[in-house]
Design a binder for these strands. Sequence first.
DNA 1: AACAAAAATAAACAGTTTGTTCATTTCTTT
DNA 2: AAAGAAATGAACAAACTGTTTATTTTTGTT
Lengths: 201, 201
Amino acid sequence: MKRKGNIDSSDRRVRYTKMMIRQSFLSLISERPISKISVTDICNQADLNRGTFYAYYKDPNDLYQQIKESLLEEIETPIESIIDTSSLYDLLLNVFTSIEQNKDLCTIVLSNNSDQEFISQILNLVRNKFIGLWHERVPMIPLKTLNYLFTFTANGSMGVLKEWLTNDVKDDTPEMMAALVEQMSSNAFLSYLTGDHNLTK
Amino acid sequence: MKRKGNIDSSDRRVRYTKMMIRQSFLSLISERPISKISVTDICNQADLNRGTFYAYYKDPNDLYQQIKESLLEEIETPIESIIDTSSLYDLLLNVFTSIEQNKDLCTIVLSNNSDQEFISQILNLVRNKFIGLWHERVPMIPLKTLNYLFTFTANGSMGVLKEWLTNDVKDDTPEMMAALVEQMSSNAFLSYLTGDHNLTK
DNA sequence: AACAAAAATAAACAGTTTGTTCATTTCTTT
DNA sequence: AAAGAAATGAACAAACTGTTTATTTTTGTT
């Protein structure tokens, strides 16, 4: 179905259609893997003509990519501003609290079967910012080492976060988790703050 | 196609068929995601009748699960014996070296789109072993904290490993990578070795 | 070497899903 | 109120699915 009109979806119908498609898809993704979700499924649930789907998306995976993209854009600015104005602990506390408040959605997005690529994209949102900050404070550490340090602490933190989300949350408060992760991350840096540890000698 | 015979595949034909199916699947998985691999594809590439596939596997994903399972069984024993007899550095060096030697396969298995569930299974192979060792050395740290420490360092190490694999490997030798990861992991523990850090106060 | 058993094959089957097209209807903006 | 854009319903060939048959080939074992 060829679309001739403008792209900016100023039309109320377009917004409604896209909203219904996304809503239907998100409801389906919570009960089965993406590979088992057909265009037919999405359109049945959304009560839309199948041709309409193809007017906007190539296939369910294309839809999924676009949903992730808009999610990334949505969280980029707030996260960056937190980094600029707060401590690592405050950032972590903010993240753990937000996730606890949106546990249902986050469990799906960060679940065991979620794609690592998306998580990498989230981490890369803040990678350069962190490395820049660290480089100012400890310019003697090579950038390559800082990069691996970021990867290590970021992936470690994300792992703890997912485990916390999977297990029963109520025992460990966001405050305790933020403190723990902050401690482990800071420690990972520790020896680099004094000695001369070059990755490539 | 119903199979009436024995399960142990002492038959030469069964071994050949399964080998061809796995080989064909692994070749296809290196060029597209599993969701785009049909039973027809696998059987064309393996030059087998489609009905034969259904005699052994439910669908391509079932095949994938079985491949992962046998891979896990294969690496479990050697990894455990290394932990028992060597230092963390030696274990890491062993892993980085093995991965460098099987770069093609490992890039696929550990790629960005690989499922995190499989990686978690690998890490859980050694989780209890590590926590046991640590608990002997520093019994004052609560088991729950040790568990989060393992999750943090294991996921951090895995992240570094994947990044190393993705980037151009030749600059950083397995020795340098093992030393770096060993250092960061040890540091994460550091403060816990003296102070009284309880996750749940 | 011969035999019975098991495995693989080819061919066919109905049932889905996929993309795409078209004429028609409904809705939105101005 | 009219023009234009979007959504619909219906139809289409193509591909994949899972399963079943009858038939052929290969195997392990006497």
